[in-house]
Write a protein that binds this DNA or RNA. Structure first.
Lengths: 143, 143
DNA sequence: ATAATTTAGTTGATATGTCAACTAAATTTG
DNA sequence: CAAATTTAGTTGACATATCAACTAAATTAT
């Protein structure tokens, strides 16, 4: 089996995950995959700025900027220019997002539990380590 | 570490892979990630039809249809209505794509080798099995 | 046989994700 | 200190991915 294409399974697992989050969070919060992940990080780290979010998820700044714009339109966050570095924008939770935090993580953790349902702790660590290895391998191939 | 979010690593690894394929295949073939995966399957399975491709990668038929349209515009494939089932379209390689097949797989396999660079056969099997498990877990959660 | 349902594929709408070009602010360098 | 470079973020262009609504053909049920 080791001649199979890892990329294929990576892609399918990722999209299955995306679709489930989209489906579950759409009805309760009108949020989709990218918005959910970004918001979860802001919950953990109030007043984070945009480029830190890009680093966190290896995401392009243009995409992150647009997701934040959506989150702002939906009134989950506010962005304010950082007085100490006027290039930078800091991101803050709103009353609305603070109010739904517990419910948000209830769903978020439920999905994460489901992913890991029949995996042992060792398997989870193995999976994450192998995914990290794959990522490093890909990062080090010169095009 | 087992309290970490698998989804995050899944997403990062997937996008790192996507970006690398985009970069490498753009210059030599003017193909991107989705086109590369779809074309690789058509190489393996000349005269496949669209819904089989959707099944293969768990992709939405709309997306697959548009990728095939691109591949047809770029003259890598042709689509013909199946006389035995006029709803279905069968996909065929063109002279152009047949000519570049060896070169295509040289690159394709190079990337796959790179993904697996420092993984043992056991680790590769483990990774694929864990990714499949994760996918099944996600598929079985009702929204 | 005809009506109802399912299947294969397309199109429109909307969001993500990337790249490139851009603005503006901060930092480095000479 | 002034010029050059880097950094943070935005915008436009373009392809993917999904969903929903649609057409047309095939299948099934009555």
């Amino acid at each position: 089996m080791s001649n199979h294409h890892i990329g294929k399974y990576l892609s399918i697992a990722h999209r299955t995950h995306t679709k489930l989050i989209d489906k579950i969070f759409k009805s309760k919060f009108d949020l989709n995959y990218g918005q959910v992940f970004i918001l979860s990080k802001i919950y953990e780290n109030n007043s984070i700025n945009q480029h830190k979010l890009c680093d966190e998820y290896s995401l392009d700044k243009a995409g992150v900027g647009r997701i934040l714009k959506k989150l702002e339109e939906k009134n989950f966050i506010k962005r304010k220019s950082d007085p100490e570095d006027k290039r930078s924008k800091k991101i803050y939770l709103t009353k609305k997002s603070k109010n739904v935090k517990a419910m948000f993580f209830k769903l978020f953790d439920k999905i994460e539990e489901q992913i890991k349902k029949d995996l042992s702790k060792e398997e989870i660590d193995t999976l994450i380590n192998l995914l990290k290895k794959v990522q490093v391998n890909l990062d080090t191939l010169e095009g």
